[in-house]
Write a protein that binds this DNA or RNA. Sequence first.
DNA 1: GTCATTTGCTGACCCAGATCAAGAATTCTC
DNA 2: GAGAATTCTTGATCTGGGTCAGCAAATGAC
Lengths: 253, 253
Amino acid sequence: MSMTHTQSRFNSTLTSQCQNCSLSALCLPIALADEDINRLDQIIERKKPLKKGEFLFRQGDTFDSVYAVRSGTLKTFNITSVGEEQITGFYCPSELVGLSGIDSNVYPVSAKALETTTVCEIPFSHLEELSSQIPSLKHQIFKVMSRKISDDQQMMVLLGKKNADEKVASFLLNLSNRFKKRGYSASSFRLSMSRGEIGNYLGLAVETVSRVITRFQKNELIHVDGKEIEIVDFPEMQKLVGVASDCGKIANI
Amino acid sequence: MSMTHTQSRFNSTLTSQCQNCSLSALCLPIALADEDINRLDQIIERKKPLKKGEFLFRQGDTFDSVYAVRSGTLKTFNITSVGEEQITGFYCPSELVGLSGIDSNVYPVSAKALETTTVCEIPFSHLEELSSQIPSLKHQIFKVMSRKISDDQQMMVLLGKKNADEKVASFLLNLSNRFKKRGYSASSFRLSMSRGEIGNYLGLAVETVSRVITRFQKNELIHVDGKEIEIVDFPEMQKLVGVASDCGKIANI
DNA sequence: GTCATTTGCTGACCCAGATCAAGAATTCTC
DNA sequence: GAGAATTCTTGATCTGGGTCAGCAAATGAC
């Protein structure tokens, strides 16, 4: 295993990579003993960056690893029978991609970089093996997958029941929460995806996304400058999403 | 544990319940050694039947078990901020309900019986413990959760991209596949959910569901008698869903 | 059995958001 | 940095499916 590790790995002497990684509290947010973190670190490969538009894996590829995003953004998508792309998710730093491949041993979606993106590759067979020895790691994997299931179900609610305004507001607040969780500004961030990709994801036409965003800006809910977004009126946005402000799960998508 | 087992458990002498269960190949379709199946069997509680409309668990209840449906049907749903119900899934015999509760230790949805329904309760802490000792069981749980993730993502595609005809056709073929998998007729079955529940699930108004079903019948794609459905023209239905007939994953929802 | 309630069907109308079109602003590329 | 290509915005128009309404059929309660 260690032979496949990249340069940076050899530079670190005694310290573990995972331990130093600013995402360690998020990627598999576990209360692991140092010794366990080291063992996890051993199986992880740090891959060279993907450039915008490059694939991490393609629908139909043999599944062997899950990936943690370290920097940048990925999208996952299906190609439908009529050849159009359907985006099923965006992945920000600290998030895990590829879990849906475990069942069939084949990735059921493609994953593509929206900008320059680096990932950690976590060979699944090794992770599974290690999870037998570290119960808290196993529990953590169950939790991450369970979380994905409930998040996706919230997304189903969004697609099935919400109108265009609610969809876009949910999307922006969801991104905001994810940035906040990793220590970035919750109110001001950059969209790494195009309007077209947002529309595709939310089940809306590009034009509708554009119009809604313009209207939000006109009503001073947000401030927009190209891909830069600033959320100005959180309470009003949350009202649109339809979530009580005291609710822990704000703007779930 | 064994103290909580019901009557039927004591009637069985040496044979395991899970071993005899006709769903064993589906519920956690594992190549478990007899000994392992017995151990799994030990932790499972067979609950008394739920009557139509009764809850298995409610949104917000503390999570402690997942449930395998033995007979009947369940639906899971959220209550939205405006008080309306959003159905996130239907569960047929052999399917597992409750996996989304692992992450937060609370069920994020409610589960309600659509008809008289029996389930096996699988206390999750015991299952997790046992999975440490039986790697193939652990792998199986990963697979079941992974499958749920990719199924839900197909559902997202359906909600985001398909029109009313495609949604209803996908729904019917998906049910057909699930019945077929458990050994029942793929072409002829009974819908345990109302038109309203189908519409809710598919993001359609009741009237639309009703009209589409009527039209399918008029065009001789299906034959309908109340809740009884017979799929007459599979190829045409699959064409509607937009899946090549040689594709393994037909009519994925 | 009878009455009440829920569930399903169908027609008439309407609107949110899709589609079409055409410029404006960005972003690639060399 | 000029030109090409893509992405974004905005307006005009169209339509799939939602809403409303009224009746029929099935199911439940007593």
